[in-house]
Amino acid sequence: MTNDKIAALQDLINVVAKLRSPDGGCPWDLAQTPETLIPYVTEEAYEVVDAIRSGDKNAIAEELGDLLLQVVLQAQIASESNDFSLAEVAEGITQKLIRRHPHVFGDITVENVEQVRQNWEEIKAAEKGESPIAAEKLTNKLLRYARTLPPLTAGMKISRKAAAVGFEWDNVEGVWEKFNEELAEFQQAIAQESPARQQEELGDLLFVIINLARWYDLDPDAALQGTNQRFIQRLSHVETLAGRPLTDYSLEELETLWQRAKAQLNRSDNLP
């Protein structure tokens, strides 16, 4: 790493340390704990993804900086309790990369990407003290997905892995039957059962929808993201058409504005 890169990183470390200093630091930063910062870690990671998808290089650099801040801030808080330091974080990931790439840093030869993945998993299992059999146990993998991934992404990976070992419908009609069954159970729970049961049935219904997406080779994350964006776009158009606060309109008037906005946006999307 060149001197200017080291200096830039050290500047960030110094700024974060000052923000956390009891002597003249920022009250907000001083009030934070690893747990209170969890939403910001998640939010910044998603903003990095959004910037990458946009292709805006300046936005990518900015959002990566925001995510790096979360890493440095977590390490700073940990160092204050002598748990670990940013140096230990960096050293840990460096050594992990070296261990898990013996074909680059050692004398192992690989023929393809699949062999790289297999070696990675075997080394990872050994690091965790797991036997190869335990490491390959399906439920261990699924639990890791459920614990660490966003729910829609985890649901798709869990669905795919389960289907690969035989937990699968014979055809898509079976998935639609399950959807109708779960929809009926959700409606019954809403009408007659506790909030906890309603939550469970909603989860079951969403999981079947994820399976439908898998059968039709669709991405539920991208689908929901598209819907969110279209809703915001149409609502923005409604606000433009309205000319005064939306709270001044009745529901029927808002529906009329919504349909006008939807029709106008559809026409503009279909322009040659």
Rank of each mutant, 00 (worst) to 15 (best):
P245G: 13
K161E: 15
I210H: 00
D11P: 03
Q115I: 04
R100H: 14
P151H: 08
V110A: 05
L257P: 00
A17R: 05
L205G: 01
D219V: 00
D50E: 15
A163F: 04
L271P: 04
D66I: 00
P27Q: 14
L9W: 02
N14I: 06
D204I: 07
E168K: 03
Q70W: 01
D83T: 07
V89G: 04
V16A: 03
G226R: 07
E252I: 06
E62A: 11
V41E: 00
K137C: 12
G203V: 00
I93Q: 05
E252C: 07
D83C: 06
F231Y: 11
A90H: 10
Q118M: 11
W258M: 10
P272C: 11
F167G: 09
D56Y: 06
R214Q: 10
A263Q: 14
G106Q: 09
I232S: 13
A163L: 07
K157T: 06
D221N: 13
L152G: 04
N228C: 09
L271K: 12
L251N: 10
Q229R: 11
W169T: 11
K5L: 14
E63T: 02
I77T: 01
R117L: 13
N82C: 08
W169Q: 04
I190T: 09
P245V: 07
L86S: 01
T256E: 15
A61P: 05
E114K: 10
L68R: 02
L97W: 09
A242Y: 03
L205R: 00
K262L: 12
L30M: 14
E168M: 06
L206R: 08
Q198R: 08
I133D: 03
L19N: 03
V208C: 01
Q198N: 04
T109A: 11
T256C: 10
Q229E: 15
I190D: 14
I123H: 08
Y145H: 09
L205P: 00
A213Q: 00
A189Y: 00
A191Q: 14
T227F: 12
E239A: 08
G129I: 03
W215G: 00
E47H: 06
D83E: 15
G25F: 02
Q95K: 11
E63K: 11
R117P: 06
L206Y: 06
T33S: 14
E43P: 05
G226A: 14
A87T: 11
T139H: 10
R260T: 05
V110S: 04
L235C: 05
D217S: 13
I108G: 06
G174K: 02
P132E: 15
